[in-house]
Amino acid sequence: VEVSPDIYQQVRDELKRASVSQAVFARVAFNRTQGLLSEILRKEEDPRTASQSLLVNLRAMQNFLNLPEVERDRIYQ
């Protein structure tokens, strides 16, 4: 799965849209901590040159964001 270069903005938009914390998003989207998500968003590494471990996390976030909005909102509950 190709990771979109605007994945970082997509995540920020989703945090605002759903009014969820980084901690909640990190847990449900890719089963990691708020600290890691914060670092990923701060660095904004180009997905095309990202490490394998970062790509795994970015893909998981993208797959989560590809779910229908209704389903994502249900998962946040």
Rank of each mutant, 00 (worst) to 15 (best):
V1N: 04
V1W: 03
V1M: 04
E2H: 14
E2S: 11
E2M: 15
E2G: 11
E2F: 15
V3S: 06
S4C: 10
S4R: 09
S4E: 07
S4A: 06
P5A: 15
P5M: 10
D6H: 13
D6Q: 10
I7L: 10
I7F: 08
Y8H: 04
Y8C: 03
Y8S: 01
Y8P: 01
Y8G: 00
Q9C: 08
Q9L: 09
Q9I: 15
Q9N: 15
Q9H: 14
Q10R: 14
Q10A: 14
Q10E: 12
Q10K: 07
Q10M: 14
Q10C: 07
V11I: 14
V11H: 00
V11A: 06
V11L: 09
R12S: 13
R12C: 03
D13P: 02
D13W: 14
D13M: 14
D13F: 09
D13R: 15
E14L: 00
E14T: 01
E14P: 00
E14I: 01
E14S: 01
E14F: 01
L15I: 15
L15H: 03
L15S: 01
K16N: 09
R17L: 02
R17G: 01
A18L: 04
A18D: 05
A18C: 15
A18W: 03
A18K: 15
S19H: 14
S19T: 14
S19A: 15
V20Q: 05
V20K: 01
V20H: 00
S21C: 06
S21W: 01
S21D: 08
Q22S: 09
Q22T: 07
Q22W: 11
A23G: 14
A23Y: 11
A23E: 15
A23N: 14
A23C: 13
A23V: 11
V24M: 08
V24K: 02
V24F: 07
V24G: 04
F25K: 00
F25D: 00
F25E: 02
F25Q: 01
F25L: 05
A26W: 00
A26M: 03
A26R: 02
A26Q: 13
R27N: 08
R27M: 11
R27I: 05
R27V: 07
R27L: 11
R27E: 14
V28H: 04
V28E: 05
V28P: 02
A29R: 00
A29H: 01
A29I: 15
A29Q: 01
F30E: 03
F30V: 05
F30R: 02
N31K: 15
N31Q: 09
N31F: 06
N31H: 09
N31R: 11
R32F: 12
R32N: 10
R32G: 14
R32D: 14
T33L: 03
T33E: 14
T33Y: 07
T33G: 12
T33D: 10
T33I: 02
T33V: 03
Q34E: 12
Q34A: 12
G35S: 15
G35R: 11
G35V: 10
G35D: 12
G35F: 15
G35P: 10
G35C: 11
L36S: 12
L36A: 04
L36V: 05
S38P: 04
S38A: 14
S38F: 06
S38V: 09
S38R: 13
E39K: 08
E39D: 14
I40E: 02
I40G: 02
I40T: 04
L41Y: 03
L41G: 01
L41D: 02
R42F: 13
R42P: 01
K43A: 13
K43C: 08
K43M: 12
E44Q: 12
E44P: 04
E44M: 08
E44L: 05
E45W: 06
E45D: 13
E45N: 06
D46F: 04
D46C: 12
D46W: 04
D46Q: 06
D46T: 06
D46P: 10
P47W: 04
P47I: 12
R48D: 11
R48F: 06
R48Q: 10
R48E: 14
T49W: 10
T49E: 08
T49D: 10
A50Y: 03
A50G: 09
A50K: 01
A50P: 04
A50W: 03
A50T: 07
S51Y: 04
S51K: 11
S51A: 09
Q52F: 05
Q52M: 08
S53F: 05
S53E: 11
S53A: 13
S53L: 08
L54F: 04
L54M: 13
L55F: 08
L55K: 08
L55D: 07
V56A: 08
V56Q: 15
V56F: 11
N57V: 06
N57T: 09
N57I: 13
N57P: 06
L58I: 08
L58H: 00
L58V: 04
L58R: 00
L58N: 00
R59W: 05
R59Y: 06
R59C: 10
A60V: 07
M61L: 12
M61V: 10
Q62H: 09
Q62W: 05
N63I: 15
N63D: 07
N63H: 05
N63Q: 10
N63P: 01
N63M: 13
N63G: 11
N63W: 04
F64H: 07
F64W: 13
F64L: 05
F64M: 03
F64C: 00
L65V: 06
L65P: 00
L65S: 03
L65M: 13
N66F: 08
N66R: 13
N66C: 08
N66V: 08
N66M: 08
L67C: 05
L67W: 07
P68K: 08
P68H: 05
P68L: 04
E69G: 08
E69Q: 12
E69A: 09
E69D: 09
E69T: 11
E69H: 05
V70M: 08
V70D: 15
V70C: 11
V70P: 14
V70L: 12
V70F: 13
E71Q: 12
E71M: 06
E71A: 11
E71G: 06
E71V: 05
R72M: 00
R72V: 00
R72D: 00
D73I: 03
D73P: 00
R74K: 09
R74T: 12
I75P: 01
I75F: 13
I75C: 10
I75W: 07
I75M: 14
Y76K: 00
Y76S: 01
Y76L: 02
Y76G: 01
Q77W: 03
Q77R: 12
Q77K: 07
Q77Y: 15
